[in-house]
Amino acid sequence: MSLFNDDIEIWRAPLVDGAYGRKRDWDAAVLVWQGKGAAVPYRHTRKVDLATRETSERFATVYLRGIVDVDSADKIRIHSQYWTLEGDPWNWVLGSRRYTMLDAKRVSK
């Protein structure tokens, strides 16, 4: 069984000028990478303070083969669900193999 068996997509949105400054236009997002990877949850669902919010957060670490061009503002799609990236990607080399590691977060109700 292969560890890299999750369908993963990386989406990038252009910056556009809005009434309050620049923002990402996710309606015009483009697919910048697609392939197999490993999405590994590393923390249980964390509920945010119920007095102020009614959401929960899920976290995962995503491993991709190769050095992938990923920006910290990109969104990642894992099993038809969009996740936001937490920080910059981490690229590393292990002998002749190359990998990219991403930390991802998904907020849900």
Score class of each variant (00 low, 15 high):
residue 1 M to N: 12
residue 1 M to R: 11
residue 1 M to H: 14
residue 6 D to Y: 12
residue 6 D to L: 00
residue 6 D to T: 05
residue 7 D to T: 06
residue 8 I to P: 06
residue 9 E to R: 02
residue 10 I to D: 00
residue 11 W to E: 05
residue 11 W to N: 09
residue 13 A to S: 07
residue 16 V to C: 03
residue 17 D to F: 04
residue 18 G to W: 03
residue 18 G to P: 04
residue 20 Y to M: 12
residue 20 Y to D: 15
residue 21 G to C: 13
residue 22 R to D: 06
residue 22 R to F: 10
residue 22 R to Q: 15
residue 22 R to N: 08
residue 24 R to K: 12
residue 26 W to R: 04
residue 26 W to H: 08
residue 27 D to I: 06
residue 29 A to W: 00
residue 29 A to C: 05
residue 29 A to T: 05
residue 31 L to V: 11
residue 32 V to H: 10
residue 33 W to H: 08
residue 33 W to Q: 04
residue 34 Q to M: 02
residue 34 Q to S: 11
residue 34 Q to F: 00
residue 35 G to F: 06
residue 36 K to W: 08
residue 36 K to Y: 12
residue 37 G to Q: 10
residue 37 G to H: 10
residue 38 A to V: 07
residue 39 A to M: 06
residue 39 A to C: 15
residue 39 A to H: 07
residue 41 P to D: 00
residue 41 P to H: 01
residue 41 P to F: 00
residue 42 Y to A: 02
residue 42 Y to M: 04
residue 42 Y to P: 02
residue 46 R to F: 04
residue 47 K to R: 09
residue 48 V to S: 12
residue 49 D to T: 13
residue 50 L to A: 14
residue 50 L to M: 09
residue 51 A to D: 14
residue 52 T to A: 08
residue 54 E to D: 14
residue 56 S to D: 09
residue 59 F to G: 02
residue 59 F to N: 01
residue 60 A to R: 15
residue 63 Y to P: 01
residue 63 Y to L: 11
residue 64 L to S: 09
residue 64 L to V: 11
residue 66 G to Q: 04
residue 66 G to N: 02
residue 66 G to W: 09
residue 67 I to G: 01
residue 69 D to A: 15
residue 69 D to V: 13
residue 72 S to T: 09
residue 72 S to W: 08
residue 73 A to S: 13
residue 74 D to W: 13
residue 74 D to T: 13
residue 74 D to Y: 09
residue 75 K to T: 11
residue 76 I to W: 01
residue 76 I to Q: 13
residue 77 R to A: 07
residue 78 I to H: 04
residue 79 H to D: 14
residue 79 H to P: 00
residue 80 S to G: 10
residue 80 S to A: 15
residue 80 S to Y: 08
residue 80 S to K: 12
residue 81 Q to P: 01
residue 82 Y to H: 10
residue 83 W to G: 03
residue 84 T to P: 04
residue 84 T to A: 04
residue 88 D to A: 12
residue 89 P to L: 01
residue 89 P to Y: 06
residue 90 W to R: 10
residue 90 W to Q: 13
residue 91 N to V: 10
residue 92 W to M: 02
residue 92 W to D: 09
residue 93 V to T: 14
residue 94 L to A: 14
residue 96 S to T: 14
residue 98 R to C: 02
residue 100 T to D: 00
residue 103 D to C: 05
residue 103 D to K: 05
residue 104 A to M: 02
residue 104 A to T: 07
residue 104 A to W: 10
residue 104 A to P: 05
residue 105 K to D: 01
residue 105 K to R: 15
residue 108 S to C: 08
